[in-house]
């Protein structure tokens, strides 16, 4: 969306206050005095994690703390060797990959059907979908565990995948996006004899890039951040995801802070790098859906 303040000021005739504004531009804005301390405070936990991650255990037990004298790269290797870290990374990638693709397919097809097709049963199906949106996860936790157990999926990655293949929220969000598209688009194609699937695949889906990116990011973040469900569904260390693995790692190395911070840093690196690369898309996704 174009921001009105972005309008080029160059074409305007110069006036006195414009000149004073130009003078202002060379002086740093006074807002830096508030913004700089604020951002430093926000960054402190992360910066201190990085500093500790390259310290020795002795350095971390100094008080008041001091910066490490040399960089202890071996902490990262120790984390990798001393825990199934590679498993956690691969498991998280598998679970989020499968769940992401299945959500993109199922949420967009169902969202399209609920938005555009008139058919018997769609109203009641949509109402039921909406009711599940309001239910907090803790309510369904125990029965979901029993259902997953009856499928023999306890302590399998399947337990993390199957219940998350589609989300009511994702369907609802995609339906809203399809409703916002002008109906004339598909009517023209329908008159030309295209099938529903053809219209969906060839005409509508190419227009849904940004909503699909939003859905992908939100799905990824929710799987990445999920903790309570993996905690009750998975027991073996080699079947854990990153979040759960990190929490057991903390339980096993209670006071070895350099090792713990190295593990925490390694676990967050993929998502932080992804965020820095695609900051705008992340922020827009969260802003447009209101989900963390």
């Amino acid at each position: 969306m174009p921001n009105p303040t972005e309008a080029p000021a160059l074409v305007k005739p110069l006036r006195d206050d414009d000149l004073s504004q130009a003078a202002h531009r060379h002086r740093p804005s006074p807002w830096h005095f508030l913004l700089l301390p604020l951002s430093l405070i926000m960054l402190t936990p992360l910066v201190w994690m990085v500093v500790t991650a390259v310290s020795t255990p002795e350095e971390s037990r100094q008080f008041p703390p001091a910066l490490p004298t040399s960089i202890q790269w071996s902490n990262f290797a120790d984390v990798w060797a001393g825990s199934p870290f590679g498993h956690w990374l691969v498991n998280t990638a598998i679970v989020s990959g499968v769940v992401l693709i299945s959500n993109l397919v199922l949420c967009s097809t169902a969202g399209y059907a609920f938005a555009r097709l008139r058919f018997r049963g769609s109203g009641i199906a949509f109402m039921l979908l909406l009711t599940t949106l309001m239910v907090p996860f803790q309510v369904v936790l125990i029965p979901t565990l029993l259902i997953v157990k009856s499928f023999g999926l306890i302590d399998h990655l399947g337990a993390l995948i199957v219940p998350n293949l589609v989300t009511a929220f994702g369907v609802f969000m995609m339906r809203q996006f399809f409703l916002a598209l002008p109906p004339d688009l598909e009517e023209a194609a329908r008159i030309d004899g295209a099938s529903r699937l053809g219209v969906f695949m060839k005409i509508l889906l190419p227009l849904m890039g940004p909503p699909l990116a939003t859905l992908a990011i939100l799905t990824f973040l929710s799987i990445w951040n999920d903790f309570l469900w993996p905690l009750v569904a998975i027991q073996s260390p080699e079947n854990m995801t990153m979040q759960l693995g990190l929490s057991t790692f903390q339980g096993a190395h209670l006071t070895d802070w350099p090792l713990l911070m190295a593990a925490t840093l390694m676990s967050q690196l993929p998502v932080i790098v992804l965020f820095l690369l695609a900051q705008r898309v992340f922020v827009r996704s969260i802003a447009s859906s209101g989900i963390k």
Binding site: L38, S39, L40, M42, L43, P45, L46, W48, M49, L221, W224, N225, F227, M242, Q243, L244, L246, S247, Q250, L260, M261, T264, S267, Q268, V271, I272, L274, F275, Q279, F282, V283, I286, K292
Partner: peptide
């Protein structure tokens, strides 16, 4: 600086 904590996982936040 203000947004990064949003993508930091709850377990990592708590550990830090």
């Amino acid at each position: 600086a203000v947004f990064i904590p949003v993508v930091t996982s709850t377990v990592a936040t708590a550990t830090m």
